[in-house]
Amino acid sequence: MESFSFWFFGGCTLIGSLLVALCPKLVHSAFSLVLALIGVAGLYWGLGADFLGGVQLLVYVGGITILFIYGIMLTPKGATKWSLGSLLFPGVIAVVPLCVMLHLAWKGLESVIKPVDAGVPQPTVDAIGRGFLNREEYLIPFELASLVLLAALVGSVYLARRKKES
C-alpha cells in the first residue's frame, strides 16, 4: 500500500514538475504545478505526516496557486519557443546533479544513513499542536512566523497599491 502510494503520487509529482519546466504555455504550467503540489501532499500522507499534507493542500493548492493564476492575467499571450542553444546550458545544469544524485541514491545512501524503522506513524496533529505551544520547543518560531505573515500581508498590500500619479 505504501509502495503504491509512493509510486502513484511520486509519478504525479515528477510529471507535474516536468510539465512546469517544459510546457510552452504559462497556463498549462500553472495547472501542472497544481498536479505536482497535490502529488507532494499525497507523499506527505504516505510518510505519515497527515497534518502537513492537509496544510499543503490548503495553503499551496488552495492559496498560492490562486495567486499564480491571478498573476497569469498580467501576462501577454504567447508561448515560449525552445531552441537548442538556449536549452544547452540549463540542460547541463539540470542533468549533472540528477545523475550524481541517482548514483549516490543507488550506491551510497543506505550505508551513510541507517534508516530507523519506528513502526507505523501515529497521527501527528496532537503532537504538532503541543509542540507549537511548548516554550521549550517551537513557541518562539511559531510567534515569529505569525509576525512574518502579518508583515508580509501589510507589505504586499502596500506594494500592490496603485500609487497616485504625481
Partner: peptide
C-alpha cells in the same frame, strides 16, 4: 518500507526542474 533513496531522488528531480524553470524562462510568474 519504501527505500529512502526514492524520496531523495524525487526531491532532487523537483529541485533540478525548479532551477531549470528559473534559468530558462523570462516571465516573472
Amino acid at each position: 518500507m519504501q527505500p529512502l533513496a526514492g524520496y531523495v531522488f524525487l526531491g532532487t528531480a523537483m529541485f533540478v526542474l525548479g532551477v531549470f524553470t528559473m534559468v530558462t524562462r523570462k516571465n516573472a510568474i
